Amino acid sequence: MAKKDSNQHIAILQDIRKKLFKPVYLLMGDESYYIDLICDAIIANALREEERDFNQTILYGADVDDFALVVNAAKRFPMMAEHQLIVVKEAQNIKGIDNLSYYLQKPQMRTILVICYKNGSLKNKKIIAGIEKIGLVYESKKLYDSQLPAFINTYVTAKKLSIDPKAVSMLADFVGNDLSRLSGELDKLAISLPEGSMRITPEAVEQNVGISKDYNNYELLNAIVAHNVPKAARIVNHFEQNPKNNPLVVTISVLFNFFANLLLCFFSADRSDNGIAKELNLRYPSQARDYLTAMRIYNAFKCIDIIALIRQYDARSKGIGSGASSNDGDLLRELVFKILYSPYQK
C-alpha cells in the first residue's frame, strides 16, 4: 500500500530497524530528505559489514543506460548472506523503467531493491500497483511552511535537546522547507552548543546560522502584534537593506499565516491559552499569547480586511495590479503601515 503521509516514514524506519524488509521499495517525490533518510536506513540495516562487498550494489541514474541492468542485478542470488541489496539512486534519469514490470511478476525474494525516484513521482500506474502488491511505495511530499515548526521541534527533541520558539521561527523563515538544509543547520547548532547546554537559543542561531535575532520575521510580527511602530519601521528598513536574507515572499507568507490563524481564533469556543493552542495545533500554550494579544487589537472583520490586503500586496510583489512596479522595500513598508493602522481606521 502506498505511503503518502509524511509521518509514515516513522513506521517504515521502525520496520527497517527491526529488519523487516520488503523485496522492493519505491521512494519517490519532491522532498528528497525523507527519501534519503529511508534509503540510508536500509543501507545501514540490510547487511552486515562483512556481507557488503559481494551483496551490496549502488547504481546511479547517470551511469545506467537502461533499467534492464537494474533488473538483471536484482535477479542474482546473494552470496553467503540472507539478502543482497540493490540501491538505485536518481532513478528518474534511467530510461526503460517499463522493464521493471516483468521483474515484479516474479521477484527475487532474497533481493532488497530500493528505487529512489526524486524531483517528482513515477506516473506508471502498472509499476506502482505491482510494487504495492509485494513491496512499498512511499511518496515524499514537500512540507508546508506551517509544518516546519513541528519538524524542527521533533528533530531537536530526538537529539534530547530543546529549542526556543523564537529560534524555531528564525530557522523556519530563513531556511524554508528545504529539509536537508534545515536538518544540517540543526545538526550544526547541536554540535556548537556550549558544554552542558541543552537548549538552542536565538543567540545560537544568530551566531551559527547568520540570522539576526533582532531583525527577522518573528520580531516583525511581534512588533505588529504589540503595535510597536518604531520597532516595525527599523525591521522593515533592515529588510530593505538586506533583501537576499529577507525575501518579501517569505515575510508575506508569515503575515498571511498569522492573520489566517488569528481569524480562526475569533471562532474558537475556548479562548484560553490552552484552547487557542489546541485550535491552532500549537506545540506550547505559551505560543498562543501573541494571538490573544492581537485579538485585543483587531476584530474578525479587520482581520478579514488585512488578509485581503496581504493578498493584494502579494500580487503586487509578483507584478500584478496597480503599483506593481514598486520595489519590495516600498511594498513591505506600505503593507506593514496599513496593517498597523488598520484597527484605528473606520
Rank of each mutant, 00 (worst) to 15 (best):
K4I: 05
D5E: 14
N7G: 03
N7W: 06
K18Q: 15
K19S: 13
L20M: 04
K22M: 06
V24H: 02
L26R: 11
L26A: 09
L26M: 09
M28R: 04
S32G: 13
S32Y: 09
C39W: 01
I42L: 11
I42N: 00
A44W: 04
N45R: 11
L47W: 04
R48Y: 05
E51L: 01
L59T: 14
Y60D: 04
Y60I: 03
V64G: 03
A68Y: 03
L69I: 15
N72D: 13
A74C: 11
K75L: 08
K75V: 07
R76H: 07
F77V: 08
P78R: 01
M80A: 10
E82Q: 13
I86N: 00
A91I: 07
A91P: 08
K95F: 03
G96L: 02
L100T: 08
Y102T: 14
Q105N: 11
Q108H: 10
Q108F: 06
I112L: 10
I112C: 08
C116Y: 06
Y117L: 12
S121M: 09
K123W: 03
N124I: 04
K125R: 10
A129D: 15
A129P: 12
K142A: 12
K142M: 13
Y144T: 13
S146E: 13
S146M: 07
Q147V: 13
Q147M: 12
L148G: 02
F151H: 12
I152D: 00
V156A: 02
L161Y: 12
D164S: 08
D164E: 06
A167M: 07
M170T: 12
D173T: 11
D178Q: 05
S180T: 15
S180C: 11
L182F: 10
E185W: 06
E185K: 00
A190C: 07
S192C: 07
L193T: 14
P194E: 15
G196W: 05
R199T: 15
R199C: 02
I200P: 00
T201L: 05
T201C: 02
P202N: 08
P202I: 09
E203V: 15
G210I: 08
D214P: 06
Y215S: 06
Y215M: 12
N222R: 04
N222C: 01
I224N: 00
A226N: 04
V229F: 04
P230M: 02
P230N: 03
K231C: 05
K231Q: 11
A232T: 01
A233G: 05
I235T: 01
V236R: 00
N237F: 10
P243V: 04
K244R: 14
N245C: 09
L248E: 08
L248Y: 14
S253Q: 03
L255H: 00
N257G: 13
F258E: 00
F259C: 12
F259D: 11
N261T: 07
L264G: 14
F266E: 06
F267N: 14
A269R: 03
S272P: 10
N274G: 08
G275N: 09
I276E: 11
K278F: 04
K278H: 09
E279W: 02
R283V: 06
S286L: 06
S286M: 09
Q287A: 09
R289H: 14
Y291E: 07
L292A: 03
L292N: 02
L292Q: 12
R296N: 14
C303T: 15
A308F: 05
R311D: 10
R311V: 01
I320E: 01
S322K: 03
S326H: 08
N327Q: 05
G329C: 07
D330M: 12
S342M: 11
Y344A: 05
Y344H: 08
